[in-house]
Design a protein around this nucleic acid. Sequence first.
DNA 1: CTGTTAGCGCATTCAG
DNA 2: CTGAATGCGCTAACAG
Lengths: 338, 338
Amino acid sequence: MAQQGRRRHVSITDVAAQAGVSITTVSHVLSGQRPVSAATTAKVRQVIAELGYEPNQLARGLRLQRTNTVALVIPDITNPFYPLIARGLQNVLGPAGMQVLVTSTDADPAAEDAAVQQMITRRVDGLAFAGYQADHRRVTAAAEVGIPVVLLGGRTARPGIDVVSADDVAGGEIATEYLITRAYRRIAFITGAERVGSPANRVLGYRHALRAAGMPYSARLVVREEISRDGGARAMARLLSLRQAPDAVLCTNDVTALGALDAAKDAGLRVPRDVAVMGFDDIEIAALTTPALTTVSIRPLEQGEAIGRLLLGRLDGSAPRAAQRILFDPAVVPRESA
Amino acid sequence: MAQQGRRRHVSITDVAAQAGVSITTVSHVLSGQRPVSAATTAKVRQVIAELGYEPNQLARGLRLQRTNTVALVIPDITNPFYPLIARGLQNVLGPAGMQVLVTSTDADPAAEDAAVQQMITRRVDGLAFAGYQADHRRVTAAAEVGIPVVLLGGRTARPGIDVVSADDVAGGEIATEYLITRAYRRIAFITGAERVGSPANRVLGYRHALRAAGMPYSARLVVREEISRDGGARAMARLLSLRQAPDAVLCTNDVTALGALDAAKDAGLRVPRDVAVMGFDDIEIAALTTPALTTVSIRPLEQGEAIGRLLLGRLDGSAPRAAQRILFDPAVVPRESA
DNA sequence: CTGTTAGCGCATTCAG
DNA sequence: CTGAATGCGCTAACAG
């Protein structure tokens, strides 16, 4: 009955006793931090194998003040954008012996707060945080206590905190310009409730582009909703019921755009003939919808890798003092929906 | 410069000193394990707030022999099936104060091995493992050392190890029966390389259904490939080049089916008129392809939650001694591709 | 080349 | 109602 095997974890003391040496010696054959004779090394290794000894990282962490763990706090692991971030992170952290602790917060401020606190409590070596709220006291607290933090998404830089993001303002601009070029004249934007972060910056780019094109900006064409497929559908429904409905709708991300597509379909409208829909992120699913979703690519896997590199740089001290801000150039991916 | 703020984490000792009490007392106001006078309680709480004290979970874990962490070892977080598992897990574990450590292994045996070892080393309280290989020595090792393990996917039960899975044999059967009902007569199967686990069981169900229908089974119609979109495309290409090509293709999962769809398109074939394609898992994307993918639903979110409940049950000792095996009934989701 | 010891931060037994 | 002391498992001075 393996499950009952309370056969206690074997400790370094057990190994030392069995091998007839001190725990120091065992520690050193493991770490190579100081020379150990071939004979003892062999003996110790043999005992380790026999006993199936696995060093306790908790103890090691307590002693070394380092957990080899990085936290990834995101809105929703179920949004295909984030698994790519997670994968990119692991791709660079894994080879360095680090692991990733993931938490989904549904962008709920209280949940974000709790998650970050949990992570501090666990003494993670680094924190990657993607949130949509303006004020991150807990995140600041993490940074202040010496945990390297990198913010994911285009919020304004904070002193001493690195940021990895798509260039959201530019993204909003090129997306809008693309639509303008395609002769759309009444362009709406579906975004999140918060006035900061990636969604807000994308809206900013959208406004820039409108202004540059000499087109009017109308606040009622910017609808703020929960960032999810359902939220996108609700927002779209609202836009379609406007007396002056838009002829094109830009969505803060692809998941939201999916919902917009749902709503257009429900309303019996054809995309893009009746309304154009455009997303953001270029998740895999975007290429497979009907019509295929025109969107903006922001290379999430590479963003995840960049986060990992930033964190490693902070940890080994090889990074410059100043906060870094890595922006990924967005690119329109023209498909069928706009 | 927050990032530089090496302002050491404050410890229970700091709090005790500042509050003019012993660490024992601080510990007890936090745990409520024994009565503390209202006055001291207030004082201690105040100091905790002032100093921003966060108990160190590493130390607590070392002392308590419990980390409140569960490992999730999966092939690929980028496959939309697994984020749902992860989410389900977190849904039940989160309220219990536990966190999830995720690792993608690409189904590589060496990586799986390393991941599980890492997890043992970190003294996770539980391990959820989804792998495609037959032999999991390291997983067995984890169970033997007292870590509750639950296997995800339909491999044969092991003594004392819980399993959560879709009923893969049944799934293979109903999928095949569905195709037979729709008058397909030459049904192929694209699966993974390993001869165990979910993919193998699905093939088993497929064979059962063929036999029950009095239809011949042909080994050359079962192609083993890497389980990925590209792998699915390669396998499909191979099947289509057969002198006697199949009129329907069952894929071990939706991601693979996506690849099969790609290959059919490349070959200029129409689905389902020229070849039918059917997947497994019912990931979100399946409803959005053109043609929409007919597939088998296996409720991943609920599977993740079941895993969480199983693990919690083992941890609080409320679970029965015997290994449990929770099977989720699969259901065909008819759409357009078959 | 090897061993003794202190201490990382905390929960808990034992003793007031 | 409160404290002192021990040990969880490990690394790194310090001392041969």
